[in-house]
Amino acid sequence: MKENIAINVNLSTSGSHLGGAAIASEYHSRSMAKYFDIELWRMWDCDEEFDMGPLKIKSFQSRTRFPHLEKFMPRRVRACLLDSNILNNLLSYRPSIVHLHNPIPSFAFENIAKQAANSGIKVVASTHGFFEVMHPNYSLKRYEKWLWQQTVTHPIRRALGYMDAVFALYPDEIKMLQEQGIPKHKIHLIPNGVNPFFLKPPQQEDYVHVQDKFGVNTTKPILLFIGNHTANKGLDTVMRVANQLSSPATIVVGGRLLSPDEPDQWAKALPPKPAIDVVFTDYLTLEEQRAFYHLATLLLFPSVSDTLPLTIIEAMACELPVVAYDVGGISYQLAHESGVVVPKGLFTEYLQTVETLLNDQDRCLYLSDNAKIRQQSIFSWESAANKTLSVYKSLLI
């Protein structure tokens, strides 16, 4: 066994299209690699190896367990059955610790936890996506919920039995993990941090670039949405805001389009009011995101299923007030008046909150000041690295 070596494993269903857990695993690993021998192994759309400073990254091409049956399976089931050669390499390499990020593909998550633990390797996991796994209650039919439980929830619950430590991202997850049978002494509160890129202000040319590229009207307040355009992330709520908002505004919708026709489809389904401009950007670079965080008046985050969104932490770092639904750890992120949290699904209250903040600059400034202070004190990768390494070292005694 390789002594005092940790392998951080990021499982994925999307290859090189990085989601929140993949981004978090990278920055978490990079912060720890300065002090501990760590490698990041990840499911990807190709095999590759490279160094990122002191961190070695190794990608393994994903594959399906049942290639001949794949075309007959629903998309959600296919995602759960993806696999890679990570497990075989772990068992051959035998590090002292395996740290799992992202619980889906669920059967790969379970197999790695089980086989590593049975081989004497210490196993820990961060809870990226656990809230969604345990609460599959958005837009699923009854048979889909049953299928989700069989292919996602149950394998992950079984995997938790092999854990030596689990890192909760926010306090309510501690209770949720205890309900899954994890002893309290194995649970550690370690929130995510923020990409240091967002701690620096944009360049002037970044502002000019986004205004020219996207034709954004900056004479009106800008309401920003950045996220996936899937059903659970709340884009429908954003478009309802555009349809009913009484104040003039520009609504910028960031995130990859589901199809080239998506903007027209939304315009027909929920036409914005005449005083509301809606701009769909498609994919945004980090520079473009940061520029919009600083140009915007509010971040709209009406997701109905989330854990501890990095987008919110980035907005807090950029002093952009957030209006969000109360799901997952968002109320923990925006506690102590660091933003406004509305009960999930109460659209009238959500719209009224947006209306009120658009007419109260002092309140927005108060929220943004609190958000920056809270981000600096709690949501830091350096802090997450120190706490994680303390747990690693206690497991290796």
Rank of each mutant, 00 (worst) to 15 (best):
Q289T: 07
D306P: 00
D51Y: 14
S303G: 02
P103V: 09
G19E: 01
L300S: 04
M239K: 14
L81D: 03
L299P: 01
T281Q: 08
L147K: 10
I86F: 00
P155W: 13
V341Y: 10
N370S: 04
P103N: 05
L396S: 03
P272G: 12
F167I: 00
P309L: 02
S380G: 00
S377K: 06
R240T: 13
L298N: 01
E49N: 10
E355K: 05
E355G: 02
N89Y: 09
I330W: 11
T219L: 15
V123A: 07
H17E: 12
Y162T: 02
C364H: 02
L367S: 02
S59W: 07
Y27E: 07
L310W: 04
K186E: 01
I38Y: 03
L87P: 01
Y332R: 04
N102V: 08
E287T: 01
Q333I: 12
L245G: 15
K58S: 08
T353R: 06
A269W: 12
L81W: 07
T388M: 02
E39H: 05
V327W: 08
T307L: 00
T219P: 11
I5Y: 05
P74D: 08
P136I: 09
P221Q: 11
A275T: 15
S390C: 04
C46E: 14
Q203M: 12
M316L: 10
N4D: 08
Y350N: 06
A384F: 03
M32S: 08
I156P: 12
V133E: 12
K34F: 08
L270C: 13
N85G: 05
V238R: 15
P248K: 09
C80L: 04
P74K: 08
T285A: 07
Y143N: 10
A116V: 14
E349M: 06
Y283M: 10
P274F: 07
A33S: 15
N386F: 07
E144W: 10
E205C: 09
Q150Y: 15
L300Q: 03
S305A: 11
S305L: 11
I187D: 03
A385I: 00
V210T: 12
P74E: 09
S126N: 13
S331C: 09
I38S: 07
Q178L: 03
V241A: 14
L365P: 00
V123P: 05
S338I: 05
G345Q: 07
E288W: 02
L189A: 06
